[in-house]
Amino acid sequence: MTGTTRVLVTGKNGQLSKSLKVVSDAAADLEFCFFARNTLDVTKAQSCSSMIDRLRPNFVLNLAAYTNVDDAERFPDNAHHVNGVGAGNLAQISAVYDIPIIHISTDYVFDGEKRSPYVETDRTNPVNAYGMSKLAGENSVSRLNPKHIVLRTAWLYSPFGSNFVSWLLSAAANGRQLRIVADQVGNPTSALDLAKSLADLVRQLEDVDWASHSGIYHLAAPEPMTRFQWAKKVIAVSGKLYGPTCQVCAAASSEFATPAVRPLRTVLSMDKYQNAFGLKFPPIEKSISDVLQALPRPRRDVH
Rank of each mutant, 00 (worst) to 15 (best):
M1V: 09
T5D: 08
V7N: 09
L8F: 14
K12E: 15
S19Y: 08
A26I: 10
F32P: 11
F32H: 12
R37W: 02
A45H: 10
S49C: 07
S49K: 09
R54I: 00
R54H: 09
L55V: 12
L63V: 10
V69A: 05
R74L: 14
N89E: 05
Q92V: 06
S94T: 09
I99K: 01
I101H: 09
I102E: 05
H103D: 06
I104D: 06
S105M: 11
S105Y: 13
S116P: 10
Y118P: 09
T121G: 03
T124W: 08
N128L: 03
M132Y: 08
A136M: 07
R143N: 13
K147T: 15
T153N: 07
G161Q: 02
L168W: 05
G175P: 14
R176I: 06
R179K: 12
D183T: 13
G186H: 11
G186S: 15
P188S: 10
L198C: 08
L201V: 13
L205T: 11
W210V: 02
Y217I: 01
H218M: 06
A220E: 07
P224G: 05
M225A: 14
T226L: 08
R227P: 13
I235Y: 01
L241M: 12
C246V: 11
A252S: 15
S253M: 02
S253R: 07
R262C: 09
R265F: 02
V267A: 07
K272L: 12
Q274I: 00
F281Y: 15
S287A: 15
D290F: 01
L292D: 01
V302K: 14
